[in-house]
Amino acid sequence: MRRLLLRDLALAFRAGGGGLTGLLFFLAVVAIVPFGIGPDVKLLARIGPAILWIGALLAALLGLDRLFQAEREDGTLDLLMMQETPLSLIVLVKCMAHWVSSGLILALSVPVFGLLLNLGPLAIGATMLTLFVGTPALTLIGAGAAAVTVALPRGGLLVSVLVLPLAIPVLIFGVSATQAAIEAPAAFLTPFLILIALNLLFAVLGPLAAATALRSLED
């Protein structure tokens, strides 16, 4: 299992692996927004955390369709399904690797990108923390969608459409936890704990759903 994690990480950061595409996309979104909104620094700081969250959500979706498709194309998926290790566990480990190469990197890039949005240290810290906790759920939801669309030639868009409705609660509680941390009267812990709960829920549901979808793949 450790080897699968390391292998997936190595593949993600090799040429064509797409590990850094999400980061570049994130940068593009964050860099464009100030130009679109105009030179209102106060407004920028207020909506900054939400922009970072939306950017991270969209960036995390980018590489998801390749999660199983690449394995299917070279025949690895057949062999992964014939292992003694349960398929849902294999899916979970693949999700962890995908998260490290997408969500974790996005969260770590917030101190740099937050400066572009005029965020203060507290807002940067809060966004980092909520992204760190919230992005695994995005990957886990995406695994189910990626498994359903694995046999479709251009399933990337379909993955996004399938993921977005389920990802909206994650976005809502992620942003509201961040806002609560910045503006004193709102309770931070409640939305933050719900965010963690969503994570745990999808850590169980995502791999199970993905494994079921892959097993029922007949080709």
């Binding site: 292998r7 070279d74 025949g75 690895t76």
Partner: peptide, 12 residues
């Protein structure tokens, strides 16, 4: 099982 596809990662 050895299918038509080799099950090897070309990058590794």
């Amino acid at each position: 099982y050895l299918g038509h596809r080799n099950g090897l990662k070309t990058e590794l």
